[in-house]
Design a protein around this nucleic acid. Structure first.
Length: 637
RNA sequence: GCCGGCUUAGCUCAAUCGGUAGAGCAACUGACUUGUAAUCAGUAGGUUAUUGGUUCGAUUCCGAUAGCCGGCUCCA
């Protein structure tokens, strides 16, 4: 007798071994139809799995992340099967499910064109219609290798050979097509009700640029056609929030062929920038930071000493002054260190928090550039904290809290990563371990969930990274906290301790916004260009209905300017509807409409970009309203 | 940097089979004095990214370069 415990605590009993799908059928046929996979004692399995012992079971549908991944993984096999049917010579690499769908990497001696995707998609539809059952089987290592060798699938052979000795090597077969795969998969190809191929892109085999570039086909799959359509619509909508598009439309910034990756900020973009910087300064002053500014060009020798020459040269720009070699700074730390070294420091001064809005230049490869998100020059809202080892945890915690405060203000959801020692790095293992553990402790003290990113730290220390999402869900690293024992050593930094002796301080390099440019890019997408009033380039537009209201409009404009409210007056000889439409498209938070009635009553008619016509009110009442919104930095998207 | 795609007026986009480019918006001029998302009329605007080739003739076909877009790699 086998007892299967369901999620709600109910227990089903079976005479002997039973397939998971039979258990699900017994729960209900509706659920069976929606089931993608099952979780048996917390682990995900196929529905065709045979249950031999007592266990607890949870049915996974498309609404569960694991269920979704199962369906999409099967969709990727359908893609591979379709490609093999149409182009038998193409070799298969890997084809996993991803957050938004799935992909499959192919090695073909021809280019897969967007037109071919349509053909492949049709073949996929056929395979779905054939409703082929998926069968799982295992092979011993030698046979598995032989199996794939016979099929000429050299990438699969390599994959098998790299599996650990004791690994179970499983295959999934659907019709004439068999793929090496750990699973799980849905019962049959017919379960994939809606599938769409989205794009082709190059991808290196195993993600290594030294390897051959394969062709990656991206797609997505759903259990309902309507879900697919909704998703595609959502993607279209999301693209309208793209900061590159909005940046142009709202005249915030531009990037020119004359300077790829070097953005130009226009007057309206500068307002956003300056407001962010003002806010940044206030928050940092409040938290005991001092501000410095260090030069952009410094002698190359400094960069030898810092280790950048050995570890970061490829990303740096160089120049000559009077036959001497200089470098354009890619980071602010060496400059900050020179400031620290400029005077003696007592333990009483520590922690010393030195902020710098520093413009850095980095040579990013051309293919990496992306609007304001990845550029070749950007301003880091940097700070270097010099401290005693005992102060590490509190200081790191302080930065974590500040970051959380700032991100919450903008309504961002973020995720955190802890990056550990990379290959090309400097310092002893002990230092790295100490530094990494300190960061880990701070994260745990802050009760933050985080993901470990092995080998992704800076060359001088491990780091905590804060990632924010853009309009289509790509994440970008913004805030970072990097712990550094190396620079203090290299630059022989010290402070005088209580004992009157010299001691080595520890350094934290940290940013909150990360780069002002990237942060603005994220902000634009977060708000779809409709900045909260405190950040809006223009906060109020005054729109006279006829020129009889012009004088009154000018008076109000002057008053608003006096109160440091950013105002524009539209005196053009246009209809009020036209002026409103334009102000709305510019995403101006408030419009003041002035006609004969307002002139006579001495009040204002207010329109909000969000709520439309608010009716007439006293000018002072409007001032109070907008002032409060600005002071409290209310996000009225 | 790599793979694929794209590049036509300031912006968004047309142009049949290869026959030297057209619209809307914006700009400018004029009329209209207007009440909560586009008033009307007119004017001007282009070496079709650059460059080489094929052709009697290239926006169109082929090559190179640059930039951009989607990924890979890399990273704030």
């Amino acid at each position: 007798m086998i007892k299967v415990t369901l999620k709600d605590g109910k227990v089903l009993e079976f005479e002997g071994p039973v397939k998971a799908e039979e258990v699900v059928k017994k729960i209900g046929m509706g659920l069976y139809k929606a089931a993608m996979a099952v979780k048996i004692d917390g682990e995900v399995f196929d529905l065709m799995t045979e249950i031999k012992n007592d266990c607890s079971i949870e049915v996974l549908t498309f609404d569960d992340e694991d269920g979704r991944w199962t369906l999409r993984h099967t969709a990727s096999h359908i893609l591979a099967q379709a490609v093999k049917r149409l182009y038998p010579k193409v070799k298969l690499a890997i084809g996993p499910a991803i957050d938004t769908g799935f992909y499959y990497d192919f090695d073909a001696d021809f280019s897969i064109t967007p037109e071919m995707l349509e053909t492949i998609e049709k073949e996929m539809e056929k395979i779905i219609k054939e409703d082929l059952s998926l069968e799982r089987f295992e092979l011993p290592r030698i046979e598995a290798i032989k199996f794939m060798e016979d099929l000429g699938e050299s990438y699969k052979v390599e994959l098998i050979k790299d599996l650990p000795e004791d690994a179970v090597i499983s295959f999934y077969k659907q019709g004439e097509f068999t793929d090496l795969c750990a699973g799980p998969h849905v019962l049959s190809t017919g379960r994939v009700k809606a599938v769409k191929l989205l794009s082709v892109a190059g991808a290196y085999w195993r993600g290594d640029e030294k390897n051959k570039m394969l062709q990656r086909v991206y797609g997505t799959a759903f259990t309902k056609k309507s879900e697919l359509e909704d998703y595609l619509k959502m993607l279209e909508e999301a693209k309208k929030r793209d900061h590159r598009k909005l940046g142009k439309e709202l005249d915030l910034f531009s990037i020119h062929e004359e300077g790829p990756g070097f953005p130009f900020f226009h007057p309206k973009g500068m307002v956003v920038r300056n407001m962010l910087e003002d806010f940044w300064r206030k928050e940092h002053t409040r938290r005991g930071y001092k501000e410095i500014k260090t030069p952009i060009i410094l002698n190359e020798a400094l960069w030898h000493q810092s280790g950048h020459w050995d570890h970061y040269k490829e990303n740096m720009y160089f120049t000559k002054i009077d036959e001497m070699d200089y470098a354009i700074k890619p980071m602010n730390c060496p400059g900050g260190i020179l400031v620290y070294k400029n005077s003696m420091h007592s333990y009483r001064e520590l922690p010393l928090r030195m902020g710098e809005l520093g413009l850095v230049h980095r040579h990013e490869i051309s293919g990496a550039l992306h609007g304001l998100m990845r550029v070749r020059c950007f301003t880091q809202d940097d700070a270097h904290i010099f401290m005693t080892p005992a102060q590490i945890k509190d200081e790191v915690l302080g930065v974590i809290n500040l970051t959380d405060y700032v991100y919450k203000l903008f309504g961002f959801e973020y995720h955190v990563e802890l990056s550990t020692r990379p290959e090309n790095s400097m310092g002893s293992d002990e230092d790295w371990e100490h530094a990494t553990n300190s960061l880990r402790e701070a994260l745990e003290a802050a009760k933050l969930d985080y993901k470990v990113n092995e080998g992704d730290g800076a060359f001088y220390g491990p780091k905590i990274d804060f990632h924010l999402k853009d309009c289509i869900g790509r994440t970008w690293q913004c805030g970072t906290i990097q712990l550094d024992f190396q620079m203090p050593e290299r630059f022989d930094l010290n402070y005088i301790g209580e004992d009157g002796e010299k001691h080595r301080p520890v350094m934290v390099h940290r940013t909150i916004f990360g780069s002002i440019e990237r942060f603005i890019g994220i902000l634009i997408e977060q708000y779809a260009g409709a900045f909260p009033t405190w950040l809006s380039p223009v906060q109020v537009k005054i729109l006279p209905v006829t020129d009889r209201a012009n004088e009154y409009a000018k008076q109000l404009e002057a008053k608003l300017k006096d109160m440091e409210i950013r105002v524009e007056l539209d005196l053009r000889n246009e209809k009020i509807g036209y002026k409103i439409r334009e102000a709305q498209l510019e995403k101006t938070p408030y419009m003041i409409i002035l006609g004969d009635k307002e002139v006579e009553a001495g009040n204002v008619s207010v329109r909000s970009r969000k709520e439309g016509d608010l009716g007439s009110m006293e000018f002072d009442a409007f001032i109070e309203k907008i002032k409060e919104e600005i002071d409290k930095k209310i996000s009225n998207i």
